[in-house]
């Protein structure tokens, strides 16, 4: 009998890469000598991301998109709920236990000026993941892999000697991307990766990201408030409002057939490149309510034009309405305006 027959078969890699179950992320301030305030940044969020999938996460500023992205990567200690990464529950792992997993999950940041250490050369920045994850790695191997990474993102080997301030915003974002994938991760959280860039550069960076995604078979959580970009790159989209996911569906379904009033309002703000088409702009009144004191029942009811008294009674659950489409709205009788 050969040795091959004795080794167990590889664990089948099926099921979603990431499963988030009733995740809560609260932040408290004060406590000693001052009243304790609790911000419920992320509240009861449940979703999955399949392998190789790009899930978009949209919502206005303050809706908890970035907090959710960071919680999923276990940058913070979760208040409640579970995050299961590739079958492994990571919700309560310590910093040390998380370390080996870090190589498989990475992040791209919004601000390409704040996300690169100004005192390090580009080579040091892109090489840091390799050094931290493999303490014994040789200098020549780091250099070779950094060079590969830089060339992949459209920079030259020689750029490794330079400092971040010598690059433009788009180039810096490329450096950030090189750092994120130099370890060949499986999962990437892209937190508004292009919103700080000039429109002319955005497409280049998005295309670069998609190219790398195909190459590494990446799974991506793509956080953005730019619906055009999200519609272009994402397989599925989740809409967040005040810390909760209010609707989630595959991109086409969501854009053609939104079922939550907030999604409709968001879509009405997307410009359409067709001057002959007229459609109603839905202007939301007021600001996002404070997450310190969210409204009772449905958090969106204070700004929703379809709100009825029943909306104030209970938080609407994120319910399946067929075809993987989920929405958190008690009104099933609405005919909402699509995005396109």
């Amino acid at each position: 009998m050969s040795i091959m027959a004795l080794t167990p078969p590889p664990i089948p890699r099926d099921g979603p890469l990431l499963r988030v179950d009733r995740l809560r992320q609260w932040f408290s301030s004060g406590g000693f000598m001052s009243p304790r305030l609790t911000v419920r940044a992320v509240e009861d969020v449940t979703f999955e991301i399949g392998r190789g999938e790009i899930l978009g996460l949209v919502g206005e500023s303050g809706s908890g998109k970035s907090t959710l992205g960071r919680a999923v990567l276990r940058v913070t200690d979760l208040t409640d709920g579970r995050v299961v990464f590739d079958g492994q529950d990571v919700s309560t792992l310590s910093k040390r236990q998380l370390r080996p997993l870090r190589a498989r999950m990475q992040m791209i940041f919004q601000d390409p000026f704040a996300s690169l250490n100004p005192r390090m050369t580009v080579g040091q920045i892109v090489g840091a993941p390799l050094r931290i994850q493999n303490p014994g790695i040789s200098r020549s191997e780091v250099e070779a892999r950094v060079g590969d990474a830089l060339r992949t993102v459209g920079l030259a080997d020689s750029h490794a000697e330079r400092y971040p301030h010598e690059f433009s915003g788009g180039q810096r974002q490329r450096i950030g991307i090189a750092r994120a994938f130099v370890l060949a991760p499986d999962f990437l959280v892209a937190d508004e990766p292009v919103s700080a860039l000039d429109v002319s550069i955005q497409a280049q960076v998005v295309n670069l990201l998609m190219e790398i995604k195909r190459k590494l078979d990446l799974t991506i959580l793509f956080i953005s408030h730019d619906l055009a970009v999200v519609g272009h790159v994402c397989d599925r989209v989740a809409v967040m409002y005040l810390g909760r996911i209010v609707e989630i569906a595959d991109t086409r379904t969501l854009f053609r057939n939104p079922r939550h009033p907030y999604t409709e309002a968001l879509f009405s703000a997307v410009p359409v490149a067709d001057p002959s088409r007229r459609r109603q702009r839905i202007l939301l009144k007021g600001d996002l309510p404070s997450p310190l004191a969210p409204p009772s029942g449905c958090a969106f009811r204070t700004r929703c034009r379809y709100a009825i008294p029943a909306c104030a009674e209970a938080v609407p659950p994120l319910a399946h309405i067929g075809g993987g489409h989920q929405k958190a709205c008690i009104r099933d009788d609405l005919a909402l305006q699509p995005a396109c």
């Binding site: 940058v75 998380l98 370390r99 870090r102 992040m107 940041f109 690169l116």
Partner: peptide, 13 residues
């Protein structure tokens, strides 16, 4: 709390 520190922590530093 700058992003580059977060990036380092994200690498398991």
């Amino acid at each position: 709390h700058r992003d580059f520190i977060l990036a380092a922590e994200m690498l398991g530093a």
